[in-house]
Amino acid sequence: MDVFMKGLSKAKEGVVAAAEKTKQGVAEAAGKTKEGVLYVGSKTKEGVVHGVATVAEKTKEQVTNVGGAVVTGVTAVAQKTVEGAGSIAAATGFVKKDQLGKNEEGAPQEGILEDMPVDPDNEAYEMPSEEGYQDYEPEA
Results as ranks from 00 to 15, higher is better:
Met1Lys: 00
Val3Lys: 01
Val3Ser: 03
Phe4Pro: 00
Met5Glu: 00
Lys6Trp: 02
Gly7His: 04
Gly7Phe: 05
Leu8Ser: 00
Ser9Leu: 08
Lys10Glu: 01
Ala11Gly: 02
Lys12His: 11
Lys12Ser: 04
Glu13Lys: 06
Glu13Cys: 08
Gly14Ala: 15
Val16Ser: 07
Val16Phe: 14
Val16Ile: 15
Ala17Met: 14
Ala17Ile: 06
Glu20Gln: 12
Glu20Ser: 03
Lys21Gln: 08
Lys21Val: 10
Lys21Thr: 06
Lys21Ile: 12
Thr22Ser: 06
Thr22Asp: 00
Gln24Tyr: 15
Gln24Gly: 03
Gly25Ile: 11
Val26Gly: 00
Val26Thr: 01
Val26His: 00
Ala27Cys: 12
Glu28Pro: 01
Ala29Val: 08
Ala29Gln: 02
Ala30Thr: 06
Ala30Tyr: 15
Ala30Arg: 02
Gly31Met: 15
Thr33Gln: 01
Thr33Cys: 02
Lys34Gly: 02
Lys34His: 03
Gly36Lys: 15
Tyr39Cys: 04
Tyr39Met: 06
Tyr39Gln: 05
Tyr39Phe: 06
Val40Pro: 00
Val40Tyr: 14
Thr44Met: 14
Thr44Phe: 15
Lys45Ser: 07
Gly47Cys: 06
Gly47Lys: 06
Val48Cys: 05
Val48Gly: 01
Val49Lys: 12
His50Leu: 12
Gly51Glu: 01
Val55Ile: 13
Ala56Gly: 05
Ala56Tyr: 13
Glu57Asp: 07
Lys58Phe: 11
Lys58Ala: 13
Thr59Trp: 14
Lys60Phe: 08
Glu61Pro: 02
Glu61His: 04
Gln62Val: 04
Thr64Leu: 12
Thr64Asp: 04
Thr64Arg: 11
Asn65Val: 11
Asn65Trp: 10
Asn65Ala: 06
Val66Cys: 07
Val66His: 03
Val66Lys: 02
Gly67Pro: 02
Gly68Asp: 07
Gly68Tyr: 11
Ala69Asn: 05
Val70His: 01
Val71Gly: 02
Val71Asp: 01
Val71Phe: 07
Thr72Pro: 02
Thr72Arg: 13
Gly73Ser: 14
Gly73Leu: 13
Gly73Gln: 13
Val74Gly: 02
Thr75Cys: 10
Ala76Glu: 05
Val77Ile: 14
Val77Phe: 09
Gln79Cys: 09
Lys80Leu: 15
Lys80Pro: 02
Thr81Ile: 09
Val82Asp: 01
Val82Cys: 07
Glu83Cys: 05
Gly84His: 06
Gly86Glu: 13
Gly86Ile: 15
Ser87Asn: 12
Ser87Phe: 06
Ile88Gln: 03
Ala89Gln: 04
Ala90Ile: 06
Ala90Gln: 14
Ala91Pro: 04
Ala91Tyr: 12
Ala91His: 12
Ala91Val: 11
Thr92Arg: 06
Gly93Asn: 04
Gly93Pro: 05
Val95Ile: 13
Lys96Glu: 11
Lys97Ile: 14
Lys97Leu: 11
Asp98Arg: 10
Asp98His: 08
Gln99Lys: 02
Gln99Asp: 10
Gln99Tyr: 10
Asn103Gln: 07
Glu105Met: 11
Ala107Arg: 09
Pro108Gln: 10
Gln109Arg: 10
Glu110Arg: 10
Asp115Val: 08
Met116His: 14
Pro117Gln: 13
Val118Lys: 10
Pro120Ile: 08
Asp121Arg: 04
Glu123Met: 08
Glu123Ile: 10
Glu123Trp: 10
Glu123Ser: 11
Tyr125Gln: 13
Tyr125His: 14
Glu126Ala: 14
Pro128His: 03
Ser129Ala: 05
Glu131His: 07
Glu131Pro: 10
Tyr133Asn: 09
Tyr133Ala: 07
Tyr136His: 10
Tyr136Asn: 04
Tyr136Phe: 06
Pro138Ala: 10
Pro138Ile: 04
Glu139Tyr: 12
Ala140Thr: 11
